[in-house]
Design a protein around this nucleic acid. Structure first.
Lengths: 374, 374
DNA sequence: GGCTCAGATGTAAGCGGTTACAGAGGAAGA
DNA sequence: TCTTCCTCTGTAACCGCTTACATCTGAGCC
């Protein structure tokens, strides 16, 4: 064993400048052992100042850079964490990754990012290949069920779920209160005097979308208003689907006086559709979004929307993960940490009182039996 | 040596279900050697079908997942590539990462993403820690000079530069023709009859911003128009700076009839400012952006902008990197691959002829000495 | 001077894979 | 029947680092 090492180290005759030097060349050049070099470079154990300097000089001369994979294998620490997102489109994910990245680099961690995780089998395979590559996982998979998680999620590596549906109680999770956010939005519209509020939903099977729909319905029911199926439009969280839904709403008779879109991207598409149909917002139609994407405030009109601290969500997810990585090595079953973030409403210009305000001057709380729309 | 292995493998008495099993336990359970297990799992070398099945069964029973770090060290292949971006804000980067991610996962690669690289020293340090962790690098650092790159960029690992200033000819690069794009935008405005076109620039020291400014000036000079310094406003590529600059332009007397913003984010901010000042776009003021961010077409009015295939840019960068990773192992000096992408103009609704169209009916090509603005 | 003890350094065994090389067995050809 | 060769499997040396343990040195103390 030893001899083979010795051969390798000095076997490279003149140090072969093309090859990346290992810690062995450094040791040889410095006239020290690899152990000392390692200690000097990592500030582990006692090393004389002069010795350390000799190591540093050798490192400098050789252009030595430690090999991460070797270190990972040896220390069983990768200093990087995996981030799996359902998608990569749009401002929402860019924001959340930014939040995670900020927290990660502050702690010296790298980020292994991967988007587009709708296919369960493919995602499971990817999770496999992450073994030994990450120290923790931040997973956002609103389309994947809790049962799936139990199966596919790696044991022995901390995981933080973002906006998980909550079925799986065994991992830390962080979620925004979608239902509450949606209620806030709809209640705001109702308070302004709207009675016919359309809902622009998200993709089938998406947990966030489902909760926002539930919140919408709750608010209507609480106000004594009827639910009507044709006011609930389908969307997929993309701008284009918002555009199409907006066109549909514009063509409805009687036309609703307000639209609540389940996310900002669709609200933006909606806005474009309404403009094409010469409908003014908010004069002819009010519009409320969800997420408070960075550009929401710069739209024309500025978008009233449910405000979610997106980057902060990412930051918190990372913080939670870090604490579970180095603070709480063996988390006993059932002690998972579930944080719920309550969104607020950012009231801007896209929602106002409807033009034909109800004469009865009813408050939003007044249960009316009048059917504004069949 | 051998004995230690044997001890480790069988030393774990009942297989300790909590610990993640290594290839040695698999070999033991399957009654085979680690070499055979490795071969069976990687389809390397000849393995009898029945033997392979025995391996697969053992893997299944133990829940074995190969340890990436070990494999990386052994094969000197990480199957992941590093992506360094100057920033993480906004749709532009989200798009580019999406393009890269798509191409990467198609090829089975992981993405190590990191944003906010303005500080040179910090970035250099990060590049170090990437050694042995990535097989290639996609780097976008418009604020870092070519000289810096020479120093900091790791040898021996393929690199693709995006929108590098071109000083460094030794690495593959991919860039969009900023100057040309800017000229397209300004020429469009001039052709519409505008004579006083303000420019909303990017951050100091940013190569992209500098080139776009140059393109703006070129177009004006080519049209025989004077350059006036106070029409060139400072920005930082963020919405907020667009908002502020928009307010400044609105207050100028005489007011320019058009604004060319060096990116879409600032154009969006600008749009908001103009709305606040009750200026209509394009009736009172025309506006052109740069990038064609996904939502540009959904704005009110739909933004006329220089169209850059952002996701495609990412995809190509990845493709280029991959070919240089496995196709062309030792790229001789000077054979670097430089691709320039020519942007086009997406003409939408935010730019139109100025209200007070010049009576002289001069074409944009006519060199006039008239100073529209001092 | 001999002792202890702490500080500085070296030796070598891991970490968990891959793979060159060797060996065993069986089939085909002489 | 004996080579020869091919298929399949095993042995052990790596990959480059960390670190437990051993070793050595010299200072401090009796």
């Amino acid at each position: 064993m030893r001899s083979s090492r010795a051969v390798r180290a000095s076997g490279t005759p003149a140090g072969d400048p093309a090859a990346t030097p290992s810690i062995y060349e450094v040791a040889r050049v410095a006239g020290l052992s690899v152990a000392t070099v390692s200690r000097a470079l990592n500030d582990k154990g006692p090393v004389r100042a002069e010795t350390r300097q000799r190591v540093l000089d050798a490192v400098e001369r050789l252009g030595y850079v430690p090999h991460s994979a070797a270190r990972m294998l040896s220390t069983r620490k990768t200093m990087s964490i995996g981030v799996l997102l359902p998608d990569m489109h749009g401002a929402f994910f860019s924001e959340i990754v930014r939040g995670i990245d900020l927290a990660a680099r502050a702690a010296g961690y790298h980020l292994l990012v991967s988007g587009s995780h709708s296919d369960a089998a493919e995602t499971a395979a990817l999770l496999q290949t992450l073994h030994g590559r990450v120290d923790g996982l931040i997973l956002m998979a609103p389309a994947l069920g809790g049962a799936w998680l139990q199966k596919a999620l790696p044991r022995r590596v901390p995981v933080v779920l973002i906006n998980d549906d909550g079925t799986d109680g065994r991992h830390d999770s962080l979620r925004i209160d979608n239902r509450r956010g949606a209620r806030l939005a709809v209640e705001h519209l109702l308070a302004l005097g709207h009675r016919a509020v359309a809902f622009l939903g998200g993709p089938e099977g998406n947990a966030d979308a489902a909760e926002r729909l539930a919140g919408y319905r709750e608010a209507l029911v609480a106000a004594g208003l009827p639910l009507s199926r044709h006011l609930e439009l389908a969307g997929d969280f993309g701008e284009e689907s918002g555009l199409q839904a907006g066109a549909k709403v514009a063509a409805l008779v009687p036309r609703p006086t307000a639209i609540f879109a389940a996310n900002d991207a669709m609200a933006i598409g909606c806005l474009a559709a309404l403009r094409e149909h010469n409908l003014r917002v908010p004069e002819d139609l009010s519009l409320v979004g969800f997420d408070d994407v960075p550009i929401a405030r710069y739209l024309t009109p500025a978008l009233t929307t449910v405000q979610v601290p997106i980057a902060e969500l990412g930051r918190q997810a990372m913080a939670c993960l870090l604490s579970s990585i180095d603070g709480r090595p063996e988390n006993p079953e059932g002690a998972a940490n579930h944080t719920v973030i309550a969104p607020t409403l950012a009231i801007r210009a896209s929602a106002a009182a409807p033009a034909e305000a109800p004469k009865k001057h009813e408050t939003s709380r007044t249960p009316t039996q009048r059917r504004t729309s069949t």
